[in-house]
Design a protein around this nucleic acid. Structure first.
Lengths: 245, 245
DNA sequence: CGAATTCTTGACGACTTCTTGACGGGCGCA
DNA sequence: TGCGCCCGTCAAGAAGTCGTCAAGAATTCG
């Protein structure tokens, strides 16, 4: 609907598409509607329908913004909010049924950033969401961000996530293990034994064929021309090296 | 990583087998299962079943990674974690019964690196354990790279990389072994026997023709005029010497 | 419990690296 | 001057390493 903002609007390569948003609600229909709408606008959505799973999901995906319904089956939404605030200051948008102004005060008091009453219009909601992301980005970009931009792809070491031209790339645990080690030692040559010991354990130090298989897999997923890698380099007989574009 | 890489440098044989891991749990069965599984993968396991003994064991064995159950009989697991964090930043993986999400958040807030909910699959657990070891290894290895500028080329001893007028130069393992040894003994004369023993092993002490071949190769790659070397010098009958420009 | 993902394993060709022998030049010494 | 020694150079075969593929086993997830 004629919204002027989205499309290329606020999308910046630095911040990227794929802003991670966690949606917590116990109504399947609303959950589905939000997931579809947000995904269509380039957000990377994860969801939870209980307070417990919400906290777990937050710790796991480290979202950049959280949408939290106060009416959850197991734990009070306010409690969930407090649980989050004990650990992160990610922006939280609270949803609640209309008129519950007592809830509203309590939520904002507990550290919510914004408050939306159901039912709500999608445009308004998206606007508030974007505002929350903007605010969050302003404060959270503090320490040496654990995000490495390789040129062709971006590795977020804390979120354990890789994006390529905005699109998230799915890596298996082993693939991520190798990539993480190489990226954390950017520019340095990492010997095969080091990788095998760190990823597979101390008793796999000679299984160099594993590395061949997984490096090939990583290159297929991350390199523009997997046959002639630019970032994931092999030094024959010595090891592997990650370099930025 | 954590490689000391002394003179003989990148010798192929032994590296950190037996990563030291401390497992803290009060369930004898789980403790036993973990000990067996971890030992089978080459880890060097020590265990504790109370918070007090855990702190003592940590101080004694100085583990490279700690697995900590939150439900201990004497001290709260969080307290143990804080006790550890008081003097070390060893990676800690927290175990907890499922659903105790508040505990998880509190644990992560107190400095845990990861958490696993019980019951858990051994594969997943091992993957997280290796990831923790990996992170610990990556950060502990950050003393600024030792770089030697020869004038015509630059040798980065930690990254194992040589650049010439900005462009990286590719060296074979043997070439690097010789160059590293010479550069680490900058200005000193290194006898042929020393080089042969360090790079090829004690049973190649008389294969001086190897050195001729590889020194020629190094000069071709690094010297401006390979026929009249300036940095990689020969002392007839004695050995070789590296000097800066 | 079944389906899907992920991991392991072996084999092959292409490529890189190592080894080996031969040849010639510079230098000191008889 | 002639000889021997040591070194630099070259090239070709041997040996080892890497990328790739595919299929079976193991594990996770719904």
């Amino acid at each position: 609907m004629t919204s002027r903002c989205e499309m290329t609007g606020w999308v910046r390569s630095s911040m990227g598409d794929g802003v991670r948003v966690l949606v917590v609600d116990d109504e399947p229909q609303l959950l589905r509607a939000l997931r579809i709408n947000l995904a269509a606008r380039g957000f990377q959505v994860s969801t939870a329908s209980t307070g417990a799973s919400a906290l777990a999901a937050a710790a796991k995906t480290n979202p950049q913004v959280v949408v939290l319904d106060l009416g959850l089956p197991d734990i009070d939404g306010i409690t969930v909010l407090q649980g989050l605030r004990g650990w992160t200051n990610v922006p939280v948008i609270v949803l609640s049924a209309r008129g519950e102004s007592v809830d509203k005060v309590a939520a904002l008091d507990a550290g919510a950033d914004d408050y939306v009453t159901k039912p709500f219009g999608m445009e308004e909601f998206l606007a508030r969401l974007r505002a929350a992301v903007r605010r969050g980005a302003a404060v959270s970009d503090t320490p040496g961000s654990a995000v490495v931009d390789a040129g062709g792809f971006v590795v977020d070491l804390t979120a354990k996530q890789v994006t390529r031209s905005g699109e998230p790339v799915h890596l298996t645990p082993t693939e991520w293990g190798i990539l993480e080690l190489l990226v954390r030692n950017e520019g340095k040559l990492v010997s095969q034994r080091d990788i095998l010991g760190a990823v597979w354990g101390p008793s796999y130090l000679n299984q160099s064929n594993y590395l061949r298989v997984y490096l090939a897999s990583l290159r297929r997923k991350l390199e523009d021309d997997p046959g002639h890698p630019v970032h994931l380099l092999t030094e024959a007989g010595m090891g592997y090296r990650f370099v930025r574009g």
